[in-house]
């Protein structure tokens, strides 16, 4: 199913849109939630329900000029899942992306969307590692094997990516 149709349904017919979103992206959302540490079945249902609800609530803020729907979705989902985990206090709040941005850390799920433009700018050599680690929540070992890199190399790219993001952020501030 095309993203365009899902977006349209979410805007006009919530029930249809929510179901279409779950049918198409449900597996990916569950994969992200599990990677971030949600294993309990009831928690998974509740958390993914939260994600779907927030996608519906925020859909009018989606801007196709800034990103694809899939990018927007995974970033908002990342914020919702992290938020859910915080509420449940099963995991503490330190998400590495927060220290990259050198701010108190996204406190609201919407804040993850605020960094969308910065992440879009991240050069490809760091961007993929970053996307896998901090958005999809994949382990360093998994990323190393998929991208055929050593674990040390993955750490290095994460570090450089963080520096780059910090630079973008400072430039935006100045």
């Amino acid at each position: 199913m095309e993203d365009r149709i899902i977006v349209e349904w979410l805007k006009k017919e919530s029930d249809k849109g929510i179901s279409a979103l779950m049918n198409h992206y449900g597996g990916l959302l569950v994969y992200m939630a599990k990677n971030i540490g949600i294993v309990d079945k009831e928690d998974l249902e509740e958390c993914i329900g939260d994600v779907l609800f927030h996608v519906w609530r925020k859909i009018r803020r989606y801007d196709e000029k800034k990103s694809s729907f899939k990018t927007w979705l995974v970033l908002l989902a990342k914020g919702c899942i992290t938020d859910y985990v915080r509420k449940k206090r099963k995991l503490l709040a330190t998400v590495p992306i927060e220290s990259i941005l050198n701010i108190e850390g996204p406190k609201r799920k919407e804040d993850y969307l605020d960094v969308l433009e910065l992440l879009q700018k991240l050069p490809p050599e760091y961007g993929e590692v970053f996307y896998r680690r901090f958005v999809l929540g994949e382990s360093v070992e998994h990323i190393a094997s998929v991208m055929r890199l050593s674990a040390v190399n993955v750490y290095k790219r994460i570090q450089r990516g963080r520096e780059k993001l910090k630079e973008f952020m400072e430039r935006e501030e100045s």
């Binding site: 433009e117 992440l119 879009q120 991240l122 050069p123 961007g127």
Partner: peptide, 8 residues
């Protein structure tokens, strides 16, 4: 605008 993240 760069859209590197979209590529991934």
């Amino acid at each position: 605008m760069d859209r590197h993240l979209d590529r991934f």
